[in-house]
Write a protein that binds this DNA or RNA. Structure first.
Lengths: 189, 189
DNA sequence: GTCTATATATTGATAGAC
DNA sequence: GTCTATCAATATATAGAC
């Protein structure tokens, strides 16, 4: 991430503020102040605040994916790697003070989200689900198709449910408990 | 719900708009127009928009609880009633066009929620969890304490996770699939 | 491409008449 | 208690000089 360049500074400032405060609560004025540029410069690079949101979601998706993949690549495929997903989320929740998933935050804040923005959110969710499915196939190579899908959905629901409970309670406990349950569940396969 | 009375009309209008559009996207002007009252009349009954939000959450919690309880009271305690929780959420998701849980929406939209507002959201979540625990105890009266808690957490996570996936995909499928999985899970107890 | 200055609309909230 | 009229602040966005 090169620190110079107006566009980069805008994206960095907007990204932090959108995640910290939410999209609607963040004003253009606050973004340009944080980025240290003039208002007209922002509109030179982005035609509207909405376009800035779409860019934020795209950028965050790629960034989060890279960080997560870096963490998971250190683990052996199969159970270790799959458990790593929950461990990574747990660490992420604690390091960002339980501010929740950036995509879910935006999806719930803005009911009338553009198709383009919604696509970023769905792609993120799909990425997690695909990862789960892949690791399940490593654990049990001859998984019957319907059982595989069912188990993947269940693990995804537990993942998201625990994330939500942790957010509401501002506590790591739901994710910690879920990790244990999932670990035992995987041993029965 | 008496239709006359300024306060009632304000709460009805604000409730619908907050849920439909979100809190920040809803302006005071829109609320008073919908309610058919003057701006100063709103501030006669509520000192600030924030106070109106707290009242909205409290009122919605009681209202939702009553509707849900009415539905569940028709079912036999135990597995039937517990499955009714998922069925009710499924019907709710479809009838409101997948606009999501009012409490989770607010919790994600406003990271710096007041303690009073946050308490309403936590109480709602706790109410669902207590209901699940009670029905589990009907299904298996001698449930060991730690296993009971673990199963309740798991069922709550599946409930919330499926709700979230359904919201993202605007589809009943995640909740339908989860219903089936939970039904089979309860048979193993 | 970046700036200053400005435009227009809307925000949450109040004063004061009735 | 309900109203009209108005407040200061802020919202997103643009015009035009450099």
């Amino acid at each position: 991430m090169k620190e110079n360049g107006a566009k980069e500074r805008i994206l960095n400032a907007a990204g932090e503020l959108f995640y910290e405060q939410g999209y609607l609560a963040t004003g253009i004025n606050q973004i340009i102040e944080e980025a240290g540029i003039a208002k007209a410069s922002l509109y030179q690079h982005f035609p509207s605040k909405d376009a800035l949101l779409t860019a934020y979601l795209h950028r965050t998706r790629l960034h989060n994916h890279e960080l997560r993949t870096q963490f998971l690549n250190k683990l052996a495929p199969g159970k270790d790697k799959l458990m790593g997903l929950y461990e990574y989320r747990l660490q992420h929740m604690q390091s960002n003070h339980f501010k929740g998933c950036a995509f879910i935050r935006i999806a719930y804040e803005l009911p009338g989200l553009s198709d383009e923005a919604m696509a970023q959110i769905r792609t993120h969710s799909q990425t997690i689900r695909t990862f789960i499915t892949e690791q399940l196939l490593v654990i049990r190579k001859n998984f019957p198709e319907n059982e595989l899908e069912e188990m993947a959905d269940m693990l995804l629901n537990l993942y998201e449910g625990a994330g939500l409970q942790g957010y509401i309670l501002k506590s790591p406990k739901p994710m910690e408990d879920t990790k244990k349950v999932v670990a035992r569940l995987l041993d029965t396969l």
